[in-house]
């Protein structure tokens, strides 16, 4: 495992910790899209079906379990916890995420590495992860200003994607037969979705001002 990949996994982990911290410390999930969180829970559950069939490393298995449990816990909190539930911006979080799930599944049935149960679900999870951030970005755009922890959450998620791209570039040049075009193309699409957010995040950081997304 190269440094980019490790840094990518760590920023991914940090993003989840930032989100858990926000929910736990403020007992509020305002600014967070439940739809995006639900999509991530589906992404991890669909992708890590191999948890019991293919052992790669302890690191790999532990991270998989952490991602599944944390994403399910976040969804559970936002739906069931009394105080957290109250702070949810339901009227702003109206993106129809079921369409994304349907479209990604159909796409996975058409484009996959192998037509097996696990491989189709793996491809599905890759496509769904690429677009899962959309409801969150739409919510931020609608609410206009973004609180610090929410901004940092999205920033770390974006950083994770960017580091994965560096990881693939590194692997492409260092590994003899490195080809994973499904993951790479989806990853590029996913990272591109963050470009706009990153632009405004950078501006607010440079001007030392609160993060504001123009409508």
């Amino acid at each position: 495992m190269n440094a980019f990949r490790l840094a990518g996994d760590i920023t991914h982990l940090i993003s989840i910790l930032v989100l858990l911290l926000k929910i736990y410390a403020t007992k509020s999930c305002s600014g967070i899209s439940l739809k995006t969180q639900e999509l991530y829970a589906v992404v991890f559950l669909a992708r890590y079906l191999d948890l019991f069939t293919d052992f790669i490393s302890v690191y790999n298995s532990v991270m998989k379990v952490v991602f599944i449990l944390s994403s399910v816990a976040i969804v559970w909190c936002m739906r069931r916890h009394r105080a957290v539930k109250r702070s949810y911006d339901k009227e702003l979080d109206t993106f129809r995420h079921y369409y994304l799930v349907g479209a990604c599944f159909v796409f996975a049935l058409l484009v996959h590495e192998k037509f097996t149960f696990q491989e189709v679900f793996w491809a599905f999870s890759i496509y769904l992860e690429a677009v899962a951030i959309i409801p969150q970005l739409v919510l931020l755009q609608r609410s206009g200003n973004v609180d610090n922890l929410t901004g940092q959450y999205v920033f770390f998620l974006g950083a994770y994607r960017a580091l994965y791209i560096l990881n693939w570039i590194y692997r492409y040049f260092t590994e003899a037969k490195f080809s994973r075009w499904i993951a790479c193309i989806s990853g590029l699409v996913q990272t591109a979705l963050y470009a706009d957010f990153f632009y405004y995040y950078f501006l607010s950081w440079k001007n030392n001002a609160k993060l504001n997304l123009p409508a």
Binding site: D50, D54, F55, I56, N60, F67, Y164, R180
Partner: peptide
């Protein structure tokens, strides 16, 4: 091993 290594990323 080849199969497993294919999805070695998270």
């Amino acid at each position: 091993a080849e199969e497993a290594a294919k999805h070695d990323e998270l």
